[in-house]
Computed example of a mutant assay.
Amino acid sequence: MTETGAGRDRLRELLDAVLDEDHRTLEEMAGGAYASPYHFSRQLSRGAGEPPVAMRRRVMLERAAWQLRQGSSVTDAAFAAGYESVEGFSRAFQRAYGEPPGSVPRDAGPHWLPAPNGIHFHPPTSLWVEGTARPAAGEVSALLVEHDLDDTRELLELAKGLDEHAYRDARLPGHAPLGFDGPDESLAQLLGHLVGTKELWLASIEGRDVPPPGADDVPALLERHDAVAPRWLAMVRDVDRRRAWGDRLVDALCEPPESFVLASVLAHVLTYSAHRRLLARHLLGAAAAWPEGDPITWLQRRTGGQP
């Protein structure tokens, strides 16, 4: 959690505002945290990796799932979760859990949904926050995933001040480490691949269609990154929780379809992302001050200087 004063935990205050029973809208949440809706949403999204409205909806669905397993009626669970109709609640529950709320057995499994931040409903009225502050050796992969997402965003922020030539000129002619991805000759191509790779792999893992090509100007890439980053992190957490890294993905987006072990997919993304981030820093030059891309200094910043 982020300290902003002696004995004060600002992120915890934001979470309390999100989950307060009386706060149903973004404006009400922000008011409870004494912030504007814009700054409230920005602070929470950066601190917890999830927009406030999406977090509240997910945690309320987790609570509803637990209540249903304790014998609550679907109607009571729906209105307690803030839905205006049982039909709307049922559709949202089915999308999240893959089954209608009326068919949830009392002895069903865990009620947690995939989350990018480890924040979940904990019965009867609390939150459970999975620890991430002091990663052990077995959590190095999780640390690398989070560093990759944060560092990619930092590079995109640094690229905001570049003119079009510096951003799009092919300063690495002929460079294409992955032929099927196309060239990585310019900063625009490097940053575009950093974001687009995760969009494509998530589509494969989630069984979705190939996402259409997105705009690659810096504001658009920032928007795309902020949309895909929490989903990517949630996927990694979910696979890890299920100990499913040995599962195989049959990627129908390939022609012909190919099979990949999930652990190798993550290793692939991290390997080429690190390569592209280093090259992007090289092209950014003095704007990307070393050693700010170093996982050591990144973790020190996150933990307040602690190793």
Rank of each mutant, 00 (worst) to 15 (best):
G98S: 02
A77E: 05
H120Q: 11
L15V: 13
D22P: 09
L68C: 04
P114F: 02
H39I: 08
Y97I: 07
S90F: 00
L15G: 10
I119E: 14
E99W: 10
R56T: 01
F121S: 12
P51L: 02
R57M: 14
P100A: 01
S90N: 10
H39N: 15
A108P: 03
V86Y: 00
L113V: 05
E21G: 11
E50F: 06
D22N: 15
G109W: 04
R58W: 07
D76T: 02
E50V: 15
R106T: 04
Q43P: 02
Y83K: 04
L26W: 07
Y34N: 12
P52K: 03
E62V: 03
Y38I: 12
P51D: 13
A64W: 00
P100T: 13
S73K: 05
R56D: 00
D22L: 14
H120S: 08
V74W: 01
S90L: 03
G49N: 13
D20S: 13
D20Y: 06
V59S: 07
D76M: 04
E28Y: 05
A78H: 00
A30R: 14
G98E: 07
G32S: 09
D20I: 03
G49I: 12
G118V: 14
L61K: 02
A115W: 09
T25D: 12
P114W: 08
L15C: 11
A54G: 02
R56F: 00
V18N: 09
R46L: 08
A17Y: 06
Q67L: 11
D22V: 13
Y34V: 11
R24L: 10
G88M: 02
L44T: 00
G32K: 11
E99T: 15
L44I: 01
R58H: 09
R56M: 02
S103C: 08
R69T: 08
L113K: 09
L19Y: 13
F121I: 12
A54K: 03
M29R: 12
P116W: 01
L44F: 00
P110V: 03
G32V: 11
S103W: 06
L44Y: 04
R24Y: 05
G71F: 05
A48K: 09
V104K: 09
W66M: 04
A30H: 08
P51M: 02
E28D: 10
P114V: 03
P110I: 04
S45C: 02
A96L: 02
G98H: 06
P105H: 14
L44M: 00
D20P: 08
P37W: 04
A65H: 03
W66Q: 05
M29C: 12
L19Q: 13
L61M: 01
